[in-house]
Simulated scan of single mutants.
Amino acid sequence: MNEDLKYRNELKFMINHHQHFIIRQRLKGLMKQDKHVGAGGEYHIRSLYFDDIHNTALHEKLGGIRDRAKYRIRIYNRSDGVIHFEKKIKFKDYIAKVKEPLTREMYDALLAGDISVLQEGRKPLLLEIHDLMKNSLLAPKVIVDYVREPFVNEHGNVRITFDKELRTGLHATDIFDPELAPVSAIDQNLIILEVKYDEYMPAAIQTAIQLEGLNRQSASKYVICRKYLKSNSWEDY
């Protein structure tokens, strides 16, 4: 465990629209909406996930390995105003995230196969990714696309999100492709509920997310979308 990172608790649940309505109604009096949401209380997230030649991130998740990492490029609301290359680290039941900004020019160069742009500025994360691309053939694998409805509370630094309309870009790897038409990767009646917090979660919020029949699940959007590709004969792994 890297002591320099800020680790947080993360819980995931797969819920239906009825459960979403009940939990959201309860949370409205306890939490605020994230400052980045639009008029509808949501924003759009699109990520390009990477894996190495052995599909290590995929197989470690499927194999239940508790300590692992995965890499992705993420944008918001289909805009290139903010582009981040992120490393999400899982340690037992905790998560941490490290990220570095990319310019649109750096992104375009990467997609064209020029990994040398990651050496600019000598940023540790980007240098790490450069080495993985060079030595382990880390490469784009799948686009993950969804709409997020987020709630936050400063006490315990609690963040609760409802991730809806999970879609995948099939064999595409350019998150800015204007012709990209993502398709549903799961039943559209399902929503992924994610709960993140630091050392503790206020009791009222704990109570608000408790529903009969609600069970914690391992709902990895990356794995769901990779499995969708395989089941539709788009790839082998």
Results as ranks from 00 to 15, higher is better:
residue 141 K to I: 07
residue 120 E to K: 14
residue 230 K to I: 09
residue 129 I to A: 07
residue 116 S to T: 13
residue 31 M to L: 03
residue 214 L to P: 01
residue 93 D to F: 01
residue 75 I to Y: 11
residue 223 V to Y: 03
residue 16 N to Y: 00
residue 188 Q to R: 15
residue 127 L to E: 05
residue 225 C to S: 10
residue 26 R to F: 00
residue 86 E to D: 03
residue 128 E to H: 06
residue 14 M to L: 15
residue 184 S to F: 13
residue 93 D to I: 01
residue 69 A to M: 11
residue 62 L to A: 08
residue 42 E to M: 12
residue 149 E to S: 10
residue 197 Y to M: 13
residue 95 I to L: 03
residue 94 Y to V: 06
residue 88 K to C: 11
residue 143 I to T: 12
residue 11 L to K: 13
residue 118 L to H: 10
residue 74 R to F: 07
residue 130 H to N: 10
residue 115 I to Y: 00
residue 223 V to Q: 01
residue 96 A to C: 04
residue 108 D to M: 08
residue 2 N to F: 10
residue 44 H to E: 06
residue 57 A to D: 07
residue 40 G to Y: 10
residue 178 P to Q: 12
residue 204 A to R: 14
residue 166 L to K: 06
residue 113 G to F: 10
residue 210 Q to R: 07
residue 215 N to M: 02
residue 192 I to K: 00
residue 58 L to C: 07
residue 144 V to T: 06
residue 92 K to Y: 10
residue 49 Y to N: 02
residue 199 E to G: 11
residue 235 E to H: 14
residue 38 G to K: 06
residue 172 A to G: 10
residue 212 E to N: 11
residue 58 L to N: 03
residue 157 N to S: 14
residue 155 H to N: 07
residue 218 S to E: 08
residue 39 A to K: 14
residue 219 A to W: 15
residue 13 F to D: 13
residue 155 H to W: 11
residue 111 L to S: 13
residue 141 K to P: 00
residue 54 H to Q: 06
residue 25 Q to I: 00
residue 8 R to W: 00
residue 14 M to P: 02
residue 220 S to L: 03
residue 202 P to R: 03
residue 54 H to C: 01
residue 15 I to L: 01
residue 94 Y to Q: 15
residue 106 M to G: 03
residue 209 I to L: 08
